[in-house]
Design a protein around this nucleic acid. Sequence first.
DNA 1: ATGACTTTCACGGAAAGA
Length: 260
Amino acid sequence: MGVLVATWNVNSLRARLPRVEQFLLEHSPDVLLLQETKCSPEQFPSADLELAGYRAIEHSGGRWCGVAALVPADVEVHDSSFGLPGEPDPSEARWVETTFAGIRFVSVYVPNGREVDSPHFEQKLDFLAAAANRVSELAKLGPLIVGGDMNVAPRDEDVWDISSFSHSTHVSEPERAALRGVLAAGEMVDAHVHLHGDQPQFTWWDYRGGSFHRGFGMRIDHILASSGIAERIESCAIARDYRKGEKPSDHVPLLVTLSD
DNA sequence: ATGACTTTCACGGAAAGA
């Protein structure tokens, strides 16, 4: 059996609904962690997802942000919580937690940061520090999976050409150190690194300038597993075809399978 | 090349993304 965990920044759940339904049908994940749902609670397409057999634990923030965890409708979740203690701006919906199958799942959308040294950049680092604090608490309680758009490329090989990233966000040492802090706080592994080492693999390509077809991408979406379940990671892959076709998101789904 | 796309809200164009 195992557990199939997926994470996907959909860049608007309403705009991406056909692709999300396609993904649920094709992969039948046990949980789909979503980011950038971009809708208010009233706008959240619960009825459509229900028809697809899924229920949402959602933390919606309106026009921007928004995170959720979709689970099959017959799965009982418990202790869901909404928001990240100590986050810089609680009105931005960037963190949601829920538990089932003995695992605590987090869907996270880390702030972009905009420009290095901008106030938004400082907020990004503050958010990651708050995430590390929370992960440290959660990891003590049991198995933990944190999946989402971290907006950080952890290593130089996680972007198409590091030389074109001078003084850019996503690759700066403070951001990378902050993300390492999250991993260290829960003694977690990055599923991709755990299985594939330094093999290149991107999860995001800019909409502009034909970036996808030119291979100009970044690996900024990650699934992290606490030490208790890292040994259960059987596979880690991206669904690259979801960057093609009708109205794609600029991110693709990342999928991890865990053994029982 | 201070761009290139895409989304939201709202109905033109700003704001945000990465």
